[in-house]
């Protein structure tokens, strides 16, 4: 995951806009065509960033949520007009099954895209976007991103010190274990107070609050980033329009009802494919250019 991706060389707004579009579209539709497209492209993009393991993770989540949605949900939801079989004289219907499967797909897809989002927007980029939207939050988040891992590290150290005193968790009763934890946390708290006091001195001595702050960022919004955002908007807005205007309407109950495919939908689907594959395509084009450049330099 420490590899450098071409999306990282763009301004964070590009990644932010992309994720916003793809998540909104995915969450607003239950149409199998768009959902499956989103699922497949999400998996492709995710594997690009995380490697093969990504697929396994998605599958694991899919199976566990799916178990609930496909096996349990239909037992409790008896709407739908096509009974498959009966349990306690209640119908388990085909429609409920399909609905369960669709919801699972939606959940897994959203999860996958969120994971992709984590790769596209690391803490620095996320911080930048949040800081742009809510300036006072920016520095606070930065401080907490530093603080939380440090606290976790210190807690580990404190627990090791307690263990070194011969207090082994496995020898203690549940109550004693809780008491030990509260001791460890109280130690952590007093250390934290000490650190925050020293940090505030360090902040003050470097002029915090003396005058209006600048928010320094390492990102510059170039013309090409504007172009990229424009492309994303051009790809995304028609799809969004179609979804909102009901072209991809699906009814599950009482009867499964998919609207027939029409040219509009096919256009929408194509645009969706292009949009969802944007990072993958950007990566691929970059890769081809690189390859070309190397070949060129060899010959």
């Amino acid at each position: 995951m420490n590899k450098h991706f071409v999306m990282h060389s763009y301004h964070p707004a590009v990644s932010g806009l992309f994720l916003l579009l793809i998540l909104v579209i995915t969450m607003l539709t239950l149409h199998p065509l768009l959902l499956v497209t989103s699922l497949v492209t999400g998996t492709v993009t995710g594997s690009l960033y995380y490697g093969r393991n990504f697929f396994k993770r998605g599958l694991f989540l899919g199976v566990s949520v799916g178990l609930y949605a496909v096996l349990i949900y239909p037992i409790f939801n008896h709407n739908g007009s096509t009974p498959l079989f009966y349990i306690n004289q209640m119908a388990v219907t085909k429609e409920a099954f399909v609905y369960g499967i669709t919801m699972t797909t939606l959940l897994v897809t959203v999860f996958l895209w969120c994971e992709v989002g984590r790769a596209l927007l690391d803490s620095e980029r996320l911080l930048y976007l949040v800081g742009k939207l809510f300036p006072s939050l920016g520095l606070m988040l930065s401080i907490s991103f530093r603080f939380l891992p440090m606290l976790a590290h210190r807690l580990t150290r404190i627990r090791q010190a307690q263990r070194g005193m011969g207090r082994r968790r496995e020898d203690l009763s549940f109550l004693m274990r809780c008491k030990l934890l509260s001791k460890e946390i109280s130690t952590l708290l007093s250390q934290t107070l000490e650190i925050t006091a020293a940090s505030s001195i360090s902040m003050e001595s470097r002029g915090y609050g003396v005058t209006k702050r600048t928010a320094y960022t390492r990102f510059t919004f170039r013309k090409s980033d504007g172009l990229r955002c424009l492309i994303l908007v051009l790809l995304g807005s028609p799809v969004l329009y179609l979804v909102l205007s009901g072209s991809f309407q699906v009814n599950f109950f009482p009867d499964l009802n998919l609207s027939d495919l029409n040219p509009q939908m096919i256009l929408g689907w194509l645009l969706m494919c292009l949009l969802a594959l944007y990072p993958a395509l950007a990566e691929w084009i970059h890769h081809m250019k690189d390859k070309h450049a190397t070949n060129h330099s060899i010959s």
Partner: peptide, 27 residues
Amino acid sequence: YVGQDPDSGIVTDRVWHELAFGLENLG
């Protein structure tokens, strides 16, 4: 001013941000 404990002098989460911190404060 630089103090004793390396941990508590640092405020932000990234090296570059820590370097920029003082200058940001001065606007």
